[in-house]
């Protein structure tokens, strides 16, 4: 469909309609109305010029996107079918690298851990966000702005810094264990990130800490868009708080919930920074995630083909998940 601009008027219209159908609403075209006195060929020339300018405008962005995103991505998929140590010639491996991704314990752990992080990055924050947003919206008092600022803050921090902070908090002699000792629970003290039974949850909680504010602010904006008259009407009909939530708030926030899930799931699946700064995937591979695994496969094990297969599985899974959620958000 990206062929050169077509000369005949008929084809041009049909092309434009096809594009409009694919892209959804577009404003009525300014060029469609013919300025008085202009002949058909003049209009055609002007429109071709506009298309030329349009392609010129698009070119730099398309070039960057193509060269540094699309081509590397395709190259990564290509490498995933080879045995390659990153230096010499690769040898064709077929689907062997993919078989390893789904059978080698550390690689399987990386994928399942990332999927499991969705609980901490998405499910819990969205629920917390719903509750917090309800409370904030019900009050409409002073302090809403300050609260929003504070809750949103983790969202803008470099995640490595967040990881570093929590690495300190969770440490053997860190603040959390100090507080436990003070309140007489010294027996529960442990190296939270080094313990096989707690490391995964400890890292997951960092994700919850980061994304809850975003979810809350998103839900709050959604709640404030819901027509207050709906609540008035429900109250007149004798609906309780639970019914209000079930029939007005929850359906009204559907889009916000989908959007929050989409953003936070993408960051759960790509949770590299926090794990790098806190555990490096350990102990064992309890907190291993694809990002760290890929890093180790490329720079320590020289198994570039396997790393690319893992990256390809991760990106395919992420893209499918986002596409599915996107569809869910559109349906009414």
């Amino acid at each position: 469909m990206t062929t050169a601009p077509v000369a005949t008027g008929v084809r041009r219209v049909s092309l434009r309609d096809a594009a409009g159908a694919a892209g959804g609403r577009r404003p009525p075209s300014p060029g469609r109305r013919r300025p008085e006195g202009a002949t058909a060929s003049e209009v055609g020339r002007a429109r071709r010029k506009a298309v030329g300018i349009g392609l010129g405008f698009l070119a730099p962005a398309a070039a960057f996107y193509l060269l540094f995103v699309i081509l590397p991505w395709l190259h990564s998929i290509q490498i995933s079918f080879y045995d390659w140590d990153g230096v010499g010639e690769g040898t064709w491996a077929g689907l062997r690298n993919y078989a390893k991704v789904f059978s080698e314990p550390a690689l399987v752990d990386a994928l399942t851990n990332a999927v499991g992080f969705i609980l901490f990055y998405t499910v819990v924050p969205v629920l917390l966000g719903l509750i917090l947003a309800q409370i904030i919206a019900a009050r409409r008092r002073r302090g809403e702005g300050v609260l929003r600022t504070i809750l949103f803050l983790p969202q803008i921090l470099p995640l490595v810094a967040v990881g570093t902070v929590f690495r300190y908090l969770y440490g053997q002699d860190g603040p959390i264990n100090q507080v436990l000792t003070w309140i007489g629970l010294g027996g529960a003290k442990r190296a939270w990130l080094g313990d096989f039974s707690t490391a995964y949850v400890a890292v997951g909680i960092v994700g919850t800490w980061v994304t809850t504010g975003l979810c809350t602010v998103l839900m709050l904006a959604g709640i404030q868009k819901i027509d207050p008259e709906l609540y008035e009407a429900a109250r007149l009909d004798g609906a309780g708080k639970a019914a209000e939530f079930r029939y007005i708030t929850a359906p009204g926030l559907r889009r916000e919930v989908v959007v929050a899930s989409m953003i936070t799931m993408v960051s759960a699946l790509a949770s590299f920074d926090v794990v790098y700064a806190t555990t490096m995937g350990g102990p064992g591979s309890v907190t291993m995630v694809p990002g760290v695994m890929i890093y180790q496969l490329v720079f320590m094990a020289n198994r570039v083909g396997v790393a690319c297969a893992l990256a390809t599985v991760l990106s395919a899974f992420t893209l499918c998940l986002v596409a599915a959620l996107n569809r869910l958000g559109r349906e009414r």
């Binding site: 590397p72 890929i294 893209l319």
Partner: peptide, 10 residues
Amino acid sequence: ALPYEAIVIP
């Protein structure tokens, strides 16, 4: 939706 992991190695 494309993770950086997918492009960084190439």
